[in-house]
Design a protein around this nucleic acid. Structure first.
Lengths: 193, 193
DNA sequence: TGTACATCAGTGAACGCGCGTTCACTGATGTAC
DNA sequence: TGTACATCAGTGAACGCGCGTTCACTGATGTAC
C-alpha cells in the first residue's frame, strides 16, 4: 500500500525514536530489528524502505538522541527536580537525578552508547560532535579562568557517575554516588565568580 | 585425553584471562566462545569442561579482571608514566594515560563493562564490590574531611574520562580529555593537606 | 468529474550465518593390583 | 616393575534459534488523461 509523504515521515520518525530509546536502554547489539518493528505495529521487511542498514539506523538514531538530550533532561525528567539559582546547577541536578538514572532510554547518549561505539570498528564522528557540544555548553556557564579544565572534568564526572549508579546493585550506594557527585560538582560550579 | 590437575588449572586460567581481555576490549556480547577457544588452540566443545555457561564465564572473568586491575595499571601500563610524589597522583596519571586508553583489554573493567552489565537483566554483585574497593582505596589516600565526596567524584571522573577518550575520534580532543582531567584531578588531590 | 495506470510503503516467507549449548567419542594419564 | 582398568579434558559434528538482509508481492494513494 502506498501512503502520502506525511505518512512515510511519521513512520520514519517513529522508527527513529523507538530505536534511539532502545539503543540507550538495552544497548545497540541487544536491540534487534524484528522486535523493534513489531512494537511499532510493522513487519521487519518494511524497515529497508526507511534505512539502508542497521548501521545506518544507528548513525541516525545517535544524531537524533544527541539533539534530543536537552529535551530529555529538562522536560521528560523535570518532575523530581528542585529549582536552582543557576542554569548549570540546574543541569547538574537534572543529569544526576534518579529519574535520569532510571530512564536511560530517554536520557543522555554518552553513558549508554559511548562504550559500544568506542568498541566498533567504524566509530561515528557524531560522538565527537555531541561531546564538543556538551563541553561548549558547560563551558559557557563557567565564567572561570579554568573553564576548559572544569568543563571537561564536569562532563566526565557526570557521565561516569550516571553510568556507575546504573550498574550498582545496592540502591543506597547507587543513590550515594549520584548525591555526592551532585554535591561536589555544584560546589565546584559555585567556586567560580 | 586426560591431563593432570595442573594442566586443567592452566587451561582454565588461560580461558579466564583471554575472556577477561576480550570482554573489556570488544564487549561481552561481541565476544563469542568459538573464536575465543580457537585462539587458545582449543575447540569450542571443551569450554563446558571448565564453565557451566557463558554467563558463568562472565562472572568469573569480571572477578578476575577486578582483582587484576592494580597489576594492569601499574605493571602493564607503567612504561610511559612519569614518577609522581604521591601514590594517588601516580594512580591518576596511570589511569588516564594513553597506554591505558589504548589497551582496554588490560585495563579497568568499569569503563568497558559497566554499561553492558547495567543493561543486563541479571546484573552482578561483583560490580558493587569492585566499585566499593576502588572507592575505599582512593579514600584512604585522601586525608581530607570531604574524602567521601572527593573519592566518588574522582572515580566517576576517571571512569568517564577514559570512556569518552576511547570513543572520541579526533586524537587531539581525546588527548585533551585525558590531559585536562588528569590535571584537574591531581590539583584536587593536592588541595587536601 | 471519472477512469486507467504508475508508484512505492509495507508484507511475510526465505536466505545464509554465527551463536550458545549438547553429546557421543577419544585417548593420555592416574590408580589399583 | 608391569598390566588392566577407570577417569575425564578435550574433540568435532549437530541442535535449535534469532539475527540482518533479500525479494517477489500487494494494494491504497497520487497522477495523467
Amino acid at each position: 500500500m502506498r501512503y502520502s509523504q506525511d505518512q512515510w515521515q511519521t513512520t520514519h520518525d517513529r522508527i527513529l525514536d523507538e530505536a534511539a530509546r532502545r539503543f540507550r536502554a538495552d544497548g545497540i547489539d541487544n536491540t534487534s530489528l524484528l522486535p523493534l518493528m513489531k512494537s511499532l505495529g510493522l513487519t521487519h521487511g518494511g524497515f529497508y524502505a526507511h534505512f539502508r542498514s542497521k548501521q545506518d539506523l544507528v548513525e541516525a538514531a545517535l544524531q537524533r538522541a544527541g539533539e534530543q538530550m536537552d529535551l530529555a533532561t529538562s522536560e521528560v525528567l523535570a518532575a523530581e527536580v528542585p529549582v536552582n539559582d543557576t542554569r548549570l546547577k540546574d543541569f547538574i541536578y537534572r543529569y544526576l537525578s534518579r529519574a535520569h538514572r532510571d530512564n536511560p532510554g530517554a536520557g543522555c547518549v554518552l553513558p549508554t552508547m559511548s562504550t559500544e561505539l568506542g568498541q566498533r570498528r567504524t566509530p561515528s564522528e557524531t560522538t565527537d560532535r555531541i561531546v564538543m557540544d556538551r563541553l561548549t555548553r558547560i563551558e559557557q556557564e563557567l565564567s572561570d579562568s579554568r573553564a576548559d579544565e572544569n568543563s571537561i572534568l564536569m562532563l566526565c564526572a557526570l557521565v561516569g557517575a550516571l553510568q556507575l549508579s546504573r550498574c550498582i546493585q545496592d540502591p543506597e550506594l547507587s543513590d550515594k554516588v549520584l548525591k555526592l557527585t551532585r554535591r561536589r560538582l555544584t560546589a565546584l560550579a559555585c567556586e567560580q565568580t
